[in-house]
């Protein structure tokens, strides 16, 4: 596996030299593998959003380097413009960025900025729409007539239509009903599976992070606090709790059981794994 994005000693300071000076990112070293699904968790204000805005060059680091495919992204202005299409970023509450008269034109905004021809734009719009499971007939509607969940999906489609190598989503399921939440997560997973691209998912939701990622990053007070596989991360319940985060519900249950003397292994984070562990303990008899 080769890294697609690398951060070296990344620092970011907001409003330096004023009373509002704030060190948002402190010496971050990080490598993201090509084709991986990375979950990023952390408290509000821990620097997650600031960090991901560096990955497509929206923010310039105060110091440190960002490498995309081994190449410094800040070598030229054209490079940054190109990078925006290679590293697609879906912001928090992306539905507030919709502006066009029709859903079609809004999704086409990104691909058009890439300078693609009409047929290619059309193909991408329809492909993206399929990924977010919206019917083609809404293409002619105004995005402002749609429901909240649909708007969110149109906005995500607008970024997917650029077919980025790395897709970053900042809290894509915040403020949605459970059904829309599951749908969007499923869309992201399908997209990752079909395109085999890299996905970075920023979320508050431990269960989602646990279930979907190969690699987890835990941010705390502007630093990268923990990094590893979900299993490694969620076997460190105490460390997570120190930063005010929790582990997935099923991991909490396992921890409780262990405290009561049931020899549950550490770092279980899916219901299936917990079930298998419990069944194994009963002497391997299967009830499945």
């Amino acid at each position: 596996m080769e890294p697609i994005l690398q951060l070296e000693h990344l620092n970011h300071v907001y409003s330096p030299g004023t009373p509002f000076e704030h060190r948002a990112l402190i010496d971050i070293d990080l490598s993201i593998e090509k084709g991986s699904f990375v979950g990023m968790i952390g408290h509000t204000g821990s620097g997650k959003t600031t960090l991901i805005q560096h990955l497509n060059g929206l923010l310039k680091p105060t110091s440190g380097r960002i490498l995309y495919n081994g190449e410094d992204i800040w070598i030229s202005k054209q490079r940054i413009h190109q990078l925006r299409f290679q590293v697609g970023l879906v912001f928090q509450y992306p539905e507030y960025q919709l502006f066009e008269e029709t859903v079609y034109r809004d999704i086409a905004f990104g691909p058009k900025n890439m300078g693609l021809d009409k047929d290619e734009v059309d193909r991408r719009v329809r492909d993206a729409l399929r990924f977010v499971e919206l019917p083609e007939r809404i293409l002619d509607h105004s995005p402002f007539e749609l429901s909240g969940g649909q708007k969110r999906r149109v906005a995500i489609a607008g970024v997917i239509a650029m077919e980025p190598e790395v897709l970053i989503l900042d809290e894509p399921i915040a403020g949605l009903d459970p059904e829309s939440r599951e749908a969007i997560l499923r869309n992201i997973q399908d997209y990752h599976a079909t395109r085999n691209n890299t996905v970075i998912l920023v979320t508050h939701n431990m269960d989602v992070a646990a279930r979907m990622s190969d690699q987890l990053l835990v941010m705390s007070h502007g630093s990268l606090y923990l990094s590893g596989t979900p299993e490694e991360i969620f076997s460190q319940t105490e460390a997570l709790e120190q930063t005010g985060l929790t582990v997935p519900e099923v991991t909490q249950i396992c921890d409780h059981l262990r405290r009561r003397g049931v020899p549950m292994p550490r770092g279980l984070y899916t219901v299936e794994a917990a079930r298998d562990a419990l069944l194994a303990m009963r002497g391997g008899s299967s009830h499945a």
């Binding site: 805005q53 497509n56 929206l58 413009h81 925006r84 299409f85 697609g88 970023l89 912001f91 992306p94 507030y96 960025q97 905004f109 990104g110 900025n113 890439m114 607008g158 970024v159 650029m162």
Partner: peptide, 12 residues
């Protein structure tokens, strides 16, 4: 935020 979001979609 909006400027950033549109820039992320390649707006110039």
């Amino acid at each position: 935020k909006i400027i950033s979001a549109q820039k992320a979609r390649g707006a110039d």
